[in-house]
Simulated assay, not measured.
Amino acid sequence: MGLRFRKSVNLGKGIRLNISKSGLGVSSGVKGLRMGVGPRGIRTTASIPGTGISYVKEKSLKQSKSSKEKRRLEVTSKDLYSPYMPQEVPHTLRSKQYHLQSLLGLIGIGFIFASFKSLSFLIIGLLCIYGKGAWRKKTDFAAKNYQDAVNYFKTKKYEACIEAIDHVLSHPNASQDLSLTKAECCLELGKLEKAYTIYKDFFHRLDTNSLSSLYYWPPKATTIAMAVEKGDYDFALKLLETLPEEIEEHINFPLWKNYYKGLCFIGKHQYEIAVEAFKNAIGRKRRMEEPYIDCHYYLGVAYAKLGKMSLAQQRFQRVYSANTSYKDIAAIITALEAGDSIEKLL
C-alpha cells in the first residue's frame, strides 16, 4: 500500500523543515521562488505570478558522472475549475427546450420521492429522467458536452475533457475561450507541442490588444514562455507588445515584458536591443531574486556577445555574489579571472 507521510514545520522567515519517510529536508524562499534541499538533492522552483506555470531546476547531490541538472517547464494546477470554462452551461448553447427538459427531470425526481406510495410512481419517475436525458442529448448536444467537459476537468479526466470541448466548439455560439481550457488539459497530459499549437492559434485568431490584460495573463504568459523555449521569437515579441506598461494587481508587467524581450533578442542575436530590454527590466531595483538575477545574468551574456567583457564581468560578479550555484556562474567567473574564453559556458 502506497502510504505517504509528510509534515512541514514553519521555522519562520520563509524557512520550512520538511519531514517525510525519505528523510529530512529544508526549504526557503519568497513568493514566486523557493529552494529546497533534501535526500534527493536540490530543487529550485520559480513561478510567474498570476499563472499556473513555473520553472523547476533539480540537481542530485550524488557525485556521479551520470548525475545531471534537470530543468523543465512545469504546470501547477491551481483549481478544479478552469477560469475559461465557467461551471454553468452558457445560455447561448441551450436550445429553446432546455428549461422544459429540466422541468421534466424535476418531475421525475418528484415521482421517485413519492414512490413509497406506489411502485408505478418509481417507474414514471425513472422514465421522466431517462426521457429528459435522451431529449437533451438530441436537442442540446453542445450543452450536454459542455457540462460533461466541466465534470471531466474537475475529475482530471483530461482526455475526455478535450473530446467534449471539441464537440462544444463545433457549435456556432461556443466561446473560443474553451480552447484555453483545452490547452490546459494538454499541458496536464504533458502534450506541450499540442498545447502550444492551440495557444498560438487562439492568439492568432483574436485581436490580442482587445483582450483583458489580467484575465488573459496566465495563458499569455504560458504561451510567451513556451514560444521563447521553442525559439519562436517573433510570435513571443508580438504577444509581449500587447502587455501593459504598468503594474496591475501586483503583476509587474514591465518586468516580465522586458525580461522576455531580452531573451527574444538574444535568441535573434540582436544584443544591443537585448541589453536595453534587460536594463529596463532591472530598473533601479537592487533585488536579486528571480527573475532579477536572470536579468543580470543574461545582461552579462549580451555584453559578452558584444565583446564588452568588463561590463559582462560586472553583471556576472553580481550574480555570483547573490548565488554561487546559479547556472555555470562559478565556472564563468573562474574563466574570466584566468583570462579564458567563456563562449562555451554561455
Rank of each mutant, 00 (worst) to 15 (best):
A277D: 06
N280Y: 03
A281N: 08
C264L: 00
L243F: 04
E229L: 13
A274Y: 05
L239Q: 10
E248Y: 11
G231L: 05
E245L: 14
G262C: 08
Y233K: 06
K230P: 05
L239C: 00
R286Y: 11
F235A: 10
P254T: 11
E272Q: 08
A277Q: 09
L239H: 06
K268G: 01
C264Y: 01
H269K: 15
I273M: 02
K257S: 05
A236M: 00
Y259W: 04
L240K: 03
G283R: 07
G231T: 02
N252H: 04
Y260M: 03
A274C: 00
I251Y: 03
I251G: 01
K279L: 12
A277N: 11
P244W: 04
G267N: 00
N280T: 10
W256E: 08
A274R: 09
L237D: 02
K230A: 14
G267F: 05
K238W: 08
K261L: 12
I266K: 10
I282K: 04
G231D: 06
F253L: 02
K285E: 14
I251A: 09
E248V: 13
R284M: 12
H250C: 12
V275Q: 14
K261H: 11
L243V: 08
E276W: 07
R286D: 14
L243A: 09
E241H: 05
K268D: 08
K268N: 13
K261A: 12
Y260R: 07
F278L: 01
L255S: 05
I273G: 09
K268Y: 01
D234E: 15
K238F: 08
F265N: 02
E229Y: 10
A277Y: 06
P244A: 06
E276N: 15
Y233Q: 04
L240G: 00
L263H: 12
I251T: 12
G267A: 08
Q270A: 08
K257G: 13
I247G: 00
L255C: 06
N252L: 04
Y259F: 15
L263C: 11
K230C: 07
G231Y: 00
F278Y: 05
N280R: 15
R286L: 15
E245C: 12
L240P: 00
A236Q: 07
L240T: 07
V275I: 13
Y260H: 15
L255D: 09
D234Y: 13
E246K: 12
K257D: 02
A236L: 11
A277M: 01
I266W: 06
L263E: 02
Q270T: 09
A274N: 09
F235C: 12
K261I: 01
L255Y: 09
F278I: 02
E272P: 02
K261S: 14
N252T: 01
I282Y: 00
E241F: 07
I251P: 00
R287H: 11
V275M: 03
A277V: 10
